[in-house]
Design a protein around this nucleic acid. Structure first.
Length: 581
RNA sequence: GGCCUCGUAGCUCAGGGGAUAGAGCAGCAGCCUUCUAAGCUGUUGGUCGGAGGUUCGAAUCCUCCCGAGGUCACCA
């Protein structure tokens, strides 16, 4: 049950009754939300102000008419018109108790919605080049994409989690050559790794595996053939590495889409280009060098260009390199056309900050290949600065070897890594301080939220101790007399729970998982606050040995808090421990 | 030079058309014979980078400027 959505509907219905000429457009701008200042009531709506102008009425008059209408609503204790025409509601206590019942009845489903209407959405994230293990730079996008995918699935979308493997192009040839060196090394040769090659140790086992599989026979084969075999094996090995790294953060994709499969004679890049030509979206032409900074090796030549400017990009984009091969972007157009042809009308791409310049052309590509039918939201994850005790921390360890994702997870754990990265907006740069993340204090939001969850278990343990005869099964708690939960503190906590459905909906709609993280922090804070009140006032304790009825009601409340914390933590992919050690 | 993102309390950050702009930390003042004090309560602190504009209403949207970061044919 979503109290806010419920009243949004009631307000809209009331307006339709009062002003039959009202338009859907005006109604769609109505918001029902908690007022910024709780003293103004439980719910607040801008309805009168939004609707007044198109109706040619005074906002306060419309608000008064609505207020009169809601005086008859049995769930409404009072309605007030405030300021320029706000409508402030105070609700009767029973409706809040209904929220608790609804949490218990819906369990893990409480907060789920169907705003996605089962529509298919493709969320592409990580897509790190398969040239080595994941490093810290990839972590934020990985966690963000994963949480966003969960959030959208929870909100009724049919989500496909996808990883685009950039396994074509010259970097992969270099990777294959680097692997061949390690192969020679495994065969006993002394090797030197030229600059430009991949120096990482992680290729050593791949070289050894080649030796185990082929002995020394690869050396006798023509180079192209040997390289092709090496490429095949190293790509598989690198993807295994990457999958293992992702698994450490509990991240799993549904589809791994290989760029290689798009290339080749008659491949999808070919057919896509033919199609683009047939649509007159491609031409032969020249580009101006970028203003203010002409590259030294700038070569003014005629090239094959995609008419990106027709779709909102700043310049038209080359599709064919000077050596005749397709550009990365050409393959990317084919890839996104492939997504569209697979039936995705909604796409989300999670990219790193260094790709922000790529956004417009990607949007242009999607618009072009779908004739405007599909949409793509590109979410950019800004840089993460690693700190240790407030001091910047070197990202690269040895020569060209970056701090790896697995190093971070091993040091601080998956839960803390995920929560901290999600506790910031994706589009702002952030600091990640190892010292803070490992701290077990309020400074550390992960701990703070998990502690609240653990406390709910602590309460139940206490009950088992003090009131061993009390039936605390969900079925028994469902029968508890919730009307006993009438204190200010009780209602405040319930109202915090009532927020959950609208928080999820807004987070999914805005593609902003951090809203969930912030909400969980607030809910944890409300729960810890209630707990402390019990220290001052025995009547506010969750467990009252001499009042089993009140205790049962309070346990229903505690169970609901736990449920919402679990639902939220699940969305973020963070565990909900019963005890902290 | 173009484009993208950001600029909110001393620090780290929420809020992204709505009422008197919030939280944590730091600072100050309190709370443990207690359901885990691994916690809680109160309090100090702001020209929302600057200037215009849009409107009933702007931290929020638009324009320009300043500052920080990223990026800039053919790499991926």
């Amino acid at each position: 049950m979503n109290v806010f959505a419920l009243f949004a509907t009631r307000v809209a219905d009331a307006l339709k009754g009062l002003y039959p000429s009202i338009t859907e457009e005006a109604l769609s701008r109505i918001v029902v939300e908690p007022p910024r200042d709780a003293a103004h009531g439980d719910l607040s709506s801008n309805a009168a102000m939004v609707v007044a102008k198109p109706l040619g009425k005074n906002p306060r008059d419309v608000a008064s008419a609505l207020a009169d209408h809601f005086k008859a609503d049995k769930d409404v204790a009072s309605v007030e018109v405030a300021g320029p025409g706000f409508l402030n509601f105070r609700l009767e206590t029973p409706i809040w108790h209904d929220v608790l019942k609804s949490v218990a009845a819906q369990g893990a489903e409480f907060g789920k919605s169907n705003v996605g209407k089962g529509e298919r959405v493709n969320v592409e994230y990580v897509s790190a080049n398969p040239t080595g293990p994941m490093h810290v730079g990839h972590t934020r996008g990985a966690v963000f994409g994963d949480a966003l995918a969960s959030l959208m699935a929870y909100s009724g979308y049919d989500v496909t989690r996808e990883y685009y493997i950039n396994d074509a192009g010259s970097q992969i040839d270099t990777l294959a050559r680097s692997t061949m060196l390690r192969y020679r090394e495994a065969l006993g040769e002394t090797i030197e790794i030229p600059s430009g090659f991949y120096p990482g140790d992680y290729l050593v086992p791949v070289g050894q595996a080649l030796k185990a599989e082929f002995g020394s026979t690869l050396l006798d084969k023509p180079e192209a053939e040997a390289l092709a075999l090496a490429k095949d094996r190293v790509l598989a090995a690198m993807m295994d590495l990457i999958r293992a790294d992702l698994a450490k953060l509990n991240i799993h994709h549904d589809v791994f889409f290989s760029e290689r499969q798009l290339h080749g004679q008659g491949g999808e890049v070919d057919t896509t280009l033919d199609w683009l030509r047939s649509q007159d979206m491609v031409y032969q032409g020249r580009l101006e060098p970028p203003k203010g900074k002409t590259p030294e090796d700038w070569e003014d030549r005629e090239q094959t260009l995609f008419r990106a400017t027709n779709y909102g990009d700043d310049v038209d984009r080359p599709l064919v390199k000077s050596n005749g091969a397709y550009t990365y972007f050409a393959a990317d157009i084919a890839y996104h056309r492939n997504k569209y042809l697979r039936g995705f009308k909604h796409m989300v791409n999670v990219l790193g900050a260094d790709h922000s310049g790529y956004v417009k052309r990607l949007q242009a590509a999607v618009k072009a290949v779908s004739h405007g039918e599909a949409d793509i939201d590109v979410r950019i994850c800004q840089l993460v600065r690693l700190l240790k005790n407030g001091e910047p921390f070197k990202m690269s360890k040895r020569s060209g070897d970056l701090v790896q994702l697995s190093d971070v997870v091993e040091e601080v754990g998956s839960d803390a890594t995920r929560f901290m990265l999600l506790y910031r907006r994706n589009d702002a740069a952030m600091d990640f301080d190892f010292a803070v993340v490992k701290e077990q204090t309020r400074d550390n939001p992960v701990f703070y939220v998990q502690y609240a969850h653990a406390r709910t278990y602590s309460v139940f343990r206490k009950v088992a101790d003090e009131l061993p005869d009390l039936d605390v099964t969900p079925a028994a708690l469902a029968k508890a007399d919730l009307s006993l939960l009438s204190s200010e503190a009780d209602l405040e906590l319930i109202k915090a729970l009532a927020q959950w459905p609208r928080i999820v909906a807004s987070a999914a709609d805005a593609h902003e998982p951090h809203r969930v993280a912030f909400y969980l922090y607030e809910l944890a804070s409300a729960f810890h606050g209630f707990w402390a009140k019990g220290n001052q006032d025995v009547a506010l304790r969750f467990v009252n040995a001499d009042d089993s009825k009140l205790t049962a009601a309070r346990l229903a409340l505690v169970a609901a808090v736990r449920q919402v914390l679990v639902n939220g933590l699940n969305l973020l992919g963070v565990s909900a421990p019963e005890e902290l050690s």
